[in-house]
């Protein structure tokens, strides 16, 4: 085999995919960034002039700020709840014996494959004014509670959708943990709690962190859940973008919000990578 051919082979192999991805990931993103600077006129539509007005509008208008603030609040709360539920659950799963371990792992992460629309719909039935939760509350003698079309409903359903994304990385790091390590801590005199805090948690913290970032990122850009459980009034970033594009037809403004969501996501990811690298340097020397 000639050397020229071996140098060319990888390029031949990647080029179809690479060209497609350049044309359909990079180009559209660049176009969207440009779109966000276009002037928009309610009468005539998108104009071939450029402006920073959309960015200014978004960061000064209370309406948009309120929606961003709600998006952050909901995403943060979802992340916190996912960590509080997902981390202990992953630990419990890791300590189960087969076949229960595999069965329940499937139960916990399997819903990942069920369409978000379906899961959102399930929650809207549970949380509706005549839904199961309210029926149970009434049966117990409490009055009905308005759950559907509130932030509570959005957070509950988001936690449901995002839980697997927290369980998976924590589970993975627990799998890599030698079970004898915890026993070693006990035999050295550590209590159950101390062993968890000093030995297990530090090992799991990276998994927890990456899980939290995924959950936060996905929650902040979630569309179906706020769309179906938040109703028309309770908007989040994604539903706002959808409305700007499909109902208001103000594409440049919609693009602006989408770009802000993207940049926020990338900043979080970069910060995470920095942190992972710093930690790796520390433990690898």
């Amino acid at each position: 085999m000639s050397r020229a051919r071996s140098a060319l082979t990888p390029w031949l192999l990647v080029s179809p995919g690479a060209l497609l991805f350049l044309a359909l990931v990079i180009v559209p993103l660049v176009l969207t960034v440009i779109l966000s600077f276009h002037v928009y006129d309610h009468g005539t539509g998108i104009k071939n002039e450029f402006t920073l007005a959309h960015y200014l509008a978004v960061v000064t208008d209370d309406y948009y700020l309120g929606i961003f603030w709600r998006t952050l609040r909901v995403a943060a709360l979802t992340t916190l709840l996912c960590a509080l539920i997902g981390v202990p659950e992953a630990y419990i799963l890791a300590r189960m014996r087969d076949p229960w371990r595999s069965v329940f792992l499937l139960v916990i992460i399997g819903p990942l494959l069920v369409s978000v629309v379906v899961r959102a719909f399930g929650w809207s039935m549970l949380l509706g004014s005549t839904g199961l939760v309210n029926q149970a509350l009434q049966a117990l003698g409490f009055g009905t509670v308005k759950l559907l079309y509130t932030e509570t409903a959005i957070v509950i359903a988001l936690v449901h959708v995002m839980l697997p994304f927290m369980v998976i990385p924590v589970w993975t790091s627990l799998q890599r943990l030698d079970p004898a390590v915890e026993a070693a801590a006990w035999t050295l005199g550590a209590s159950r709690f101390t062993a968890l805090r000093r030995v297990v948690m530090p090992q799991v913290s990276m998994g927890m962190l990456s899980g939290s970032l995924i959950v936060f990122g996905l929650s902040a850009s979630a569309f179906a859940i706020p769309g179906l459980l938040g109703g028309r009034r309770l908007k989040m970033a994604a539903t706002l973008v959808y409305d700007e594009f499909m109902h208001e037809l103000n594409w440049p403004l919609g693009a602006t919000i989408a770009i802000i969501v993207l940049v926020a996501n990338l900043v979080i990811m970069l910060a995470y990578n920095r942190m992972v690298e710093a930690r790796a340097r520390r433990t690898l020397g």
Binding site: V25, P28, L29, L31, T32, G217, L218, A220, S221, F223, A237, A238, V241, Y242, F245, G254, A255, A258, I259, V261, L262, N265, L266, M269
Partner: peptide, 10 residues
Amino acid sequence: IIPHLVLGVA
């Protein structure tokens, strides 16, 4: 890592 929302818009 790019939100589907952003890909949809793009």
